[in-house]
Design a binder for these strands. Structure first.
Lengths: 160, 160
DNA sequence: CGTGAAAGTTTGATTGT
DNA sequence: ACAATCAAACTTTCACG
């Protein structure tokens, strides 16, 4: 399942995680490879599932009046079935941009995008008021997006 | 700063946020437009900054043994200068994938990617032990990534 | 891995609505 | 003001060395 990556793979993956709009030629120049060699490597990574997809990232400020909020959730009962149902709902709500299940006193962290406080409240309502299995939740509105990305290091710096 | 978007723009933006690897022809078919009409709209959105960039999304599982953790942070003193310094550090750490400043008892939420618990602890250490301005922090390891994206609705569903 | 030819895609000028 | 068409330029793809 996990292929070996050489230095060139690491550098290419770093580049395309930052900007996937560059040509094979440009990427090749950067790492010292021909366009077709770059192509071969990238399509191998796409085939293996390492590269899942390519997406356009929008500026949330530029769209419409947009706010983010972090919502922490604790469930009442924790059967596999309860978790599965929660996952399904979360997947179906376009306002939920991210959802992580957690170790500790909270079961989930949700990052929600909404058009304002009222909308945010409506989303929380839809998630929780109609689900008798939520024990507690806490909404923290986001003031500022300091850093935002999905970039994953494919190797770690000298420390670690 | 905010241009008017028509129905076609909304649909195109929705499409490219999910998959920016499709051809102008394919996108055009989907919405009923010629490739060059799609092109004109997308490059307008790129020019205006609405579309910030195009990135490749990797599967964190496929890379190396990867774990996520949510870290909540409360600062000691809250001058503009203290916040600025905190932002700078966070930007420079590849392990910090996302960082949001919050309203409420916590000042920041950080989503961290690390190679394991030990690495995660080292990252927390680097952030906090060497900064006398962090009052308190709480690390919550992520069990499961339920949903993960940067997709922003450009218009809201019927409710809101 | 690189080369190069073939296939496909993007770009922009032009014309029409 | 915006869309379609078409041809030129560029990019990707793939067989071969």
């Amino acid at each position: 399942m996990r292929e070996p990556l050489d230095d060139l793979d690491h550098r290419l993956l770093e580049l395309v995680q930052n900007d996937a709009g560059r040509t094979l030629h440009e990427l090749g120049e950067e790492v010292g490879l021909s366009p077709s060699a770059v192509q071969r490597r990238l399509s191998r990574h796409r085939g293996s599932g390492l590269i899942q997809r390519q997406v356009a990232v929008l500026d949330p400020e530029a769209v419409t009046s947009t706010m983010f909020a972090l919502i922490l959730v604790a469930l009442e009962r924790e059967s596999v079935e309860h978790h599965r149902r929660f996952h399904e709902r979360v997947q179906d709500m376009p306002e939920v941009q991210q959802c992580y299940s957690l170790a500790g006193k909270w079961d989930y962290a949700l990052l929600v995008v909404a058009s304002g406080i009222a909308h945010c409240r409506a989303v929380a309502g839809e998630l929780f008021l109609s689900d008798d299995n939520v024990r507690r939740y806490e909404t923290m509105p986001v003031f500022d997006v300091v850093k935002r990305g999905l970039e994953v290091p494919t190797r770690w710096p000298e420390r670690q």
